[in-house]
Write a protein that binds this DNA or RNA. Structure first.
Lengths: 112, 112
DNA sequence: TCGGTATTTCGCCAATAATCGAATTATATT
DNA sequence: AATATAATTCGATTATTGGCGAAATACCGA
């Protein structure tokens, strides 16, 4: 349940969609898989990654496994975001893109 | 500056360390590179990824390029986290990991 | 214009990640 | 015990990523 696993888990659109679906209620592995054009084994891999990141929890009921959102990682995620960008960024140091001093030949979106 | 680029950019420890360093003040590409045992070209690639994610901005000054934290992405990041886990997770639905199922068998209003 | 410094871009390679179908495990039902 | 169903694990394949050194680009000063 480290920061790295957390951000990496969220860095995939399929996995974010799984989380979004679970926001509307718990779903079984099969029900979740039905929402994607991917093999069940592929989805199963995504579940494992999300579980290791602390973003979902699994509960077996009979032959099916029900997945639910877990807020265990939310606190860690919020703390990480704040530590990286939060307090420092809100202060005077950070810049809104486009508000940098406009010197000759400086950035401008795609500064190359 | 999409959600995907944002999370992927944050999913690498070197890039997170770059952001952490920039929290204490702007630094040039060379000054940043000096903090890592990596080739400058490798760091340059990380800068590009962070810039595309909207997490940093570049300003050329003479031959050097100064990087600064940008809060342009913070709002988007916060919104994404909330959309995925926030409101829904804070409610009654999500579980803390390790929380025993309240009552086996039938507390899911409607098992779908 | 020439030389020096800072940084990026370009090929290339190794490691990691995403995907699939087939085989396997776990549970329930008859 | 045999069968059926749900999900995972396994082995192989392809795509993406992170890394390097060398070459190219951008800028400054003499």
């Amino acid at each position: 349940m480290g920061i790295d696993e957390l951000f990496r888990a969220l860095g995939d659109p399929t996995r974010r969609e799984i989380l979004r679906l679970l926001r509307d209620g718990d779903l079984s592995a099969g029900e979740l898989a039905a929402h994607f054009p991917l093999a069940k084994s592929t989805l199963s891999g995504h579940f494992t990654i999300l579980r290791h990141a602390g973003l979902i929890v699994a509960e077996r009921r009979g032959t099916t496994i029900i997945y639910s959102l877990s807020i265990g990682a939310v606190e860690e995620l919020a703390a990480a975001v704040m530590a990286l960008l939060g307090a420092g960024a809100v202060g005077a140091r950070a810049k809104w893109p486009g508000t940098a001093p406009r010197r000759k030949g400086s950035e401008k979106g795609e500064a190359r």
